[in-house]
Design a protein around this nucleic acid. Structure first.
Lengths: 344, 344
DNA sequence: CTGTTAGCGCTTTCAC
DNA sequence: GTGAAAGCGCTAACAG
């Protein structure tokens, strides 16, 4: 039932070589033959078998995407923009949810290799030893690679990131400019370069403003609503800040919820700034002031970087750094002056 | 640089057939040989080339997933649960965003066919002619198929859906039980069976409660925050209901925002119930009362259905209907009695 | 129990 | 310009 190149050749009255040539646009073929063959292919609804051509060294037109969790809106939106651009360029995406599990990471590495994908995009950290060595294998195997939203200073690689330092700096400055001094940071485990840079930006801004940094105001957690809420709650009970810099929108939402449960008003009593500017940011109440990442552009750019590399267009690895942007909504406000005396 | 079955055979001092046999666990092999070969494979870090085996009729272990939009939390969460279960069963997922575009749908059909995926999961409508005939092609080609969250009454197929009729009925009853009578429905274009059934459930509940149905309270829109907000706004300006049944959580959020912009309080002045119970539901303020879909289970079940079909385990097509569940949070409340006289 | 051999559908020399 | 034929890496009869 399946059409093969032989069927086409027979129907067109030529050899399979000729058909192959018109498919791949190689060699010299008379206009007549080419048209004839094209017509037949169209009519038969013929599509070359990918496995067969992949076997003979051609591309599979598949790109592997390693992401921690597509159900997280940030990665969902990123995946969508990647898929869109890949589709335009003729590639499909195999999606791999690593769940931050290093075993799954290295497992997916080998599966993708086995499926001989044309390239791999990383949207996930690769901090542990296992996946690091798997990564090296991939590099050694000359499988094109690109990272997004994750820096890897040691290895030369194609990378698309945002300027996290600037992001941390700008977010903090926004809070500072509203009069806040006691600012807490709610973040992940602090292991990724992105987090580290945001923290550096935070420190830099605080320092420039001559505000001493209280390390007990750094709240490490996991990037999930649940644990964010717990940790934020503990923080509030321990030492109430006037503002919070959350390292992503989910964590910012968590902080809002924790505050609400305690009757703390946002932004009147507590300003909160997020990071990412996912759909969540405009959904919550109050709408989130947040550092926006240009997700669609980031997705587009990694794909282009990767495809260029696959086609051998590029010589050197590139690092594309995009600027984040402050989006002011309603979760941050000027610090209230605490009246020295209550005039009841 | 790439290891082939020949390398393994040579290193193990056996023929490639033997190697193939231990890989696929077919035929009889002495324990010794098997162990020897296994050891060599492990040591060489050998993985069989998928394209080669796919070419000889074996599975590609790839499942295609057609979804309208993974950046929508519902489909994101669904995709995640599908990917998880597929991974457990040894399959990878190629994700295809159709954007509700029928051209993309049929285009993806043929790409997936060409990539000889082992099966296809539909999480998207196939209402138009083009994709309908493409679907038939797939059925004719004997490519296993399963639909999720979309019924297709005409064709026998493996399907996992929720009981949308019950969902519409229960949601409406909840509102009714709180004393509401003027209930508006904010929905998509009403074309899918899911929407139709929810509407039937709505009508049924209203009828049983002897509440006349006002057709001007059906608000068709697109499943997006923006247009949901616009349409809800128009509705409010036109004829203010006391409660809203939104056909998904995004639309419910949209209604909340439109209400807030007009100073209408939820749930005091307006009750809103959503559908899906995505992360959004717990993020918004007020947290959304909504009809919960068992997303993780739905994802798990489609994959299982599809894999069973691929393995030829099943005889007849199945339709699995899961019950939705009312999750009461804070966006719905008892209709306030309008005091006949204000005792200011 | 194990090896030989003929393809799977396609690309790519090498002849004509 | 076009075709014959040799693989790509693997599976599956078919023989021993």
């Amino acid at each position: 039932m399946k059409k093969t190149i032989y069927d086409v050749a027979k129907a067109a009255g030529v050899s399979i070589t000729t058909v192959s040539r018109v498919i791949n646009n190689t060699g010299r073929i008379s206009v007549k033959t080419r048209q004839k063959v094209m017509a037949v292919m169209k009519e038969m609804d013929y599509l070359p078998n990918v496995h067969a051509s992949a076997l003979t060294g051609k591309r599979s037109n598949i790109i592997g995407l390693l992401t921690p969790d597509i159900s997280n809106p940030f990665f969902g939106e990123l995946a969508k923009s990647i898929e869109d651009r890949a589709d335009e360029l003729g590639f499909n995406i195999i999606i791999c949810s690593t769940d931050h599990d290093s075993k799954k990471e290295s497992k997916y590495f080998s599966i993708l290799k086995q499926k001989s994908v044309d390239g791999i995009i990383f949207a996930t950290g690769i901090e542990n030893h296992d996946s690091m060595s798997a990564l090296e294998d991939i590099v050694n195997d000359d499988i094109p690679l690109a990272m997004i939203s994750q820096d890897k200073p040691l290895v030369p690689m194609d990378i698309v990131i945002i300027d996290d330092f600037l992001g941390g700096y700008a977010a903090t400055n926004h809070l500072l400019s509203l009069g806040h001094r006691k600012i807490a940071c709610i973040m992940g485990d602090g292991s990724t370069t992105g987090e580290k840079d945001r923290m550096k930006g935070f420190r830099q801004a605080m320092q420039e403003a001559d505000v001493p940094i209280d390390d007990s105001l750094f709240v490490p957690t996991v990037f999930s609503l649940k644990s964010g809420k717990e940790e934020a709650g503990k923080l509030f009970d321990r030492s109430m800040p006037t503002a919070i810099f959350a390292f992503n929108d989910v964590l910012a939402c968590a902080a809002i919820q924790a505050a609400r449960e305690r009757g703390i008003k946002v932004p009147e009593d507590l300003s909160i700034i997020g990071f990412d500017n996912t759909v969540l940011a405009e959904m919550v109440d109050p709408p989130l002031t947040t550092m926006s990442q240009p997700i669609p552009e980031m997705g587009r750019r990694v794909v282009e970087l990767l495809v260029d590399e696959m086609k051998g267009k590029k010589t050197a690895k590139q690092k594309i750094m995009l600027p984040p942007e402050l989006v002011i909504r309603h979760s941050t406000a000027r610090l209230k002056d605490i009246p020295p005396v209550r005039l009841s």
